[in-house]
Design a protein around this nucleic acid. Structure first.
Length: 647
RNA sequence: GCCGACGUAGCUCAGAGGUAGAGCACUUCCUUGGUAAGGAAGAGGUCGAGAGUUCAAUUCUCUUCGUCGGCUCCA
């Protein structure tokens, strides 16, 4: 007998070799029906795998994150089985579960595959699922594994096997499909009741651009049809929040083929919104001791040779502008830091004046790969809310902490609460990607860790995401469709001060090298507004809304009174539209609602007589009539409450 | 940049080898209406661009530009 400890602390005795499923059965039949995997001593196992020693066991169901990923991983195998049945001879790459669903990378050889083929694969999957084929685990020697896939002729699996240790190789087989896989899997295919393929895409084998491109097929499955329907509905809803759609509908921004791809045009309403965000941060930054600076949109190529950016990104950038006469070369500035370094160097600096904080809403241009462009989140010309802090080494942590405060203040002011703070580290396997010596990197990484910890930030560390000159603390936020984007970023940099030979005179009357902190709380206005738009589904907070009110006269008889109201509100810096079209009030209201204007001011005979206005709130309806002054109070109160909350 | 799909009026979309259609938006007229679409009429497109096949192409083929979904990249 062995002792099994359950999550509630209960210890039960079972025969050696007992499975998760059997343990579930011993508790309740209902539980047993729902169990899809078991966590044994912290490791997720097949629910059907025998346990031969004392262990703590947690039974996993669809409601557990690991339960879902097991379910989806098994679904990837099911899809592979269906694909192999329909397209015999295809080769398989890898097929993991992802955050929502799964994919499998396949080499289709002579077959082609597109969305039109989805249905037959889905049908085949359901057909196979109904066969209730168990997922059977087997341990295989390396030799046998190689033999199996050599015979099958699957080079990708052979490559995967070559990286594995003999003795640690397992296969899983369900129905006619055998895969190299460490598992775990659901007990059998019948758990999968609803299937939907989502999209096809190319994906490089082994994530390497130089390798062959495989076909990646994405899908999702559920234990109930209803859940699939709900998921698909959710997806539809999410698409409605897409900033590219809302940006067009709300007339915030546009693109023009003639201007060039990835070069956004800000329409009046978008520009208004942007302006308000910019002013909000500018005011905050002045309070926090930043000094605004302004630098040109181009800089000599020499500037970027000095900074190291030319060597690193030169060939993939917008190419230099050549002057007509003496062959000088200038670059559209891809970042502001070199310019700011030169501002630092305009005079000798004393330790007493540090930290110096230069801030600039600097527009930069980067030649992003064409396939990377994406609405406003990835563009070729964008404005960073950039600043560079030049400080003494002993000030780095404190300055870093202050920037964290600022970033959190900005995020909170706009109700972003589900961001991830990510410490982006260098890739130790790939040291040639970075400049600077290891000790400086260690110091910078340590400074970031300590600052984050001091501020009580929950962080994840991701190797390989650092900038080439230093590690970063990045604030990551997801868009409506679950794609993750970097918004705010804070970076510690020992390299640029060195390259630009920045100095300050210390208390010891000696020259010292300052440390630079690069930081951008929004990241870029473009990306920030994109994600903000999706976050609030176009219903911007009142203080940001490009059109805050719509004044709607009931008929032209009340137009002059309405105009008077509108003018008064404008004097109080309340902006909006005056809708004196020859339309009925219902129509004007509808149009204002569709435009997501926060407040509608409706005036007719009653209001004119009482010297009042009828107020209607977007998405809520009529909130009664009041004097113009009361409305202004209510309006300002709402804005103040919104901003006060964050103090 | 790579793989795949797509590109018809300002927007959302239908259509077909014989030089195009709807709804909304727009313009004009009627209507002066009280909380999410009042009525009528009108105007609007070399069907992304270029080349080829064909008696004929917006429809088929190729190229190109752009968009979308991913991959790779992201100072």
């Amino acid at each position: 007998m062995i002792k099994i400890t359950l999550p509630d602390g209960a210890v039960r005795e079972y025969q050696e070799g007992v499975t998760g499923l059997e343990i579930a059965k011993s508790i309740s039949e209902g539980l047993a029906r729902n169990v899809i995997a078991a966590k044994v001593n912290g490791e997720v196992w097949d629910a059907t795998r025998g346990i031969y020693a004392d262990a703590t066991v947690q039974l996993l169901t669809w409601n557990d994150k690991e339960g879902k990923s097991t379910f989806w991983h098994s679904s990837a195998h099911l899809m592979a089985e269906a694909l192999e049945a329909l397209y015999p001879g295809i080769k398989f790459g890898t097929g993991p579960a992802i955050e929502a669903g799964f994919y499998y990378d396949v080499d289709l050889g002579d077959f082609s595959f597109s969305q039109e083929d989805f249905q037959r694969v889905e049908e085949k999957m359901l057909e196979l699922a109904k066969q209730k084929n168990p997922y059977v685990r087997s341990e295989v020697s390396k030799k046998d594994a190689i033999e199996f896939f050599t015979e099958k002729g699957d080079p990708y699996k052979l490559e995967l096997i070559s990286r594995l240790e003999d003795g640690s190789i397992t296969f899983y087989k369900q129905g006619a499909f055998t895969d190299l896989c460490k598992g775990p899997h659901i007990p059998d295919t019948s758990y999968i009741k609803a299937v939907k393929l989502l999209n096809v895409a190319g994906a490089y084998w082994n994530k390497d651009q130089n390798n062959k491109m495989l076909t990646r097929i994405y899908g999702i499955t559920f234990p109930k049809q209803k859940e699939l329907d709900e998921y698909l509905h959710l997806l539809e809803e999410a698409k409605k929040r897409d900033h590219r759609k809302l940006g067009k509908e709300l007339e915030l921004f546009a693109f023009s083929e003639k201007v060039g791809m990835g070069l956004p045009l800000w329409l009046p309403k978008g520009a208004m919104l942007r302006d308000r965000l910019e002013n909000f941060l500018k005011r905050t930054q002045v309070k926090m001791g930043y000094s605004p600076v302004v630098t040109p949109h181009i800089g000599s190529k020499q500037l970027y040779i000095t900074s190291g950016h030319w060597e690193k990104y030169g060939k993939d950038s917008f190419q230099p502008i050549h002057t007509p006469d003496d062959g000088e070369e200038f670059l559209l500035k891809p970042m502001n830091c070199p310019h700011h370094c030169e501002i630092y160097k305009t005079k000798p600096r004393s330790y007493k004046e540090l930290p110096i904080r230069f801030a600039e809403f600097g527009t930069v241009y980067r030649y992003e790969q064409s396939g990377e462009l994406h609405g406003l989140t990835r563009v070729r010309g964008f404005t960073q809310d950039d600043a560079h802090i030049f400080c003494r080494p002993d000030q780095v942590k404190e300055e870093f902490c202050k920037v964290i405060d600022l970033v959190l203040y900005v995020l909170k002011s706009l109700s972003f609460d589900n961001y991830t703070a990510q410490i982006s580290l260098r890739d130790l396997e790939n040291p040639t990607k970075y400049i600077g010596d290891s000790a400086q990197w260690d110091a910078a990484e340590q400074a970031i860790r300590e600052a984050a910890q001091e501020k009580g930030l929950q962080t994840v560390e991701v190797p390989g995401e650092a900038a080439f000159y230093g590690p970063k603390l990045d604030f990551m936020v997801k868009d409506a469709l679950g794609r993750q984007w970097q918004l705010g970023t804070i970076q510690v940099d020992y390299q640029l001060p060195q390259r630009f030979e920045l100095e300050y005179i210390g208390a010891d009357n000696q020259k010292h090298r300052p440390v630079m902190i690069h930081r951008a709380p929004f990241g870029s206005l473009e990306r920030f507004i994109a994600v903000l738009t999706e976050h609030c589904a176009g219903n911007f907070p009142l203080w940001l809304s490009p059109e805050q009110i719509a004044v709607l006269p009931i008929s032209e008889k009340y137009e002059s009174y309405a105009q008077q109201v509108f003018d008064t509100l404008q004097q109080y810096d309340i902006r909006g539209i005056f809708d004196n079209r020859d339309e009925k009030i219902g129509r004007k209201i509808r149009d204002a609602e569709v435009k997501k204007i926060p407040y509608m001011i409706i005036v007719g005979e009653k209001e004119q007589l009482d010297n009042k206005i009828a107020v209607r709130k977007h998405g809520q309806g009529d909130i009664g009539s009041m004097s113009v002054n009361d409305f202004i109070k209510l309006f300002e109160e709402e804005i103040n409450n919104m901003l006060r909350r964050t103090l």
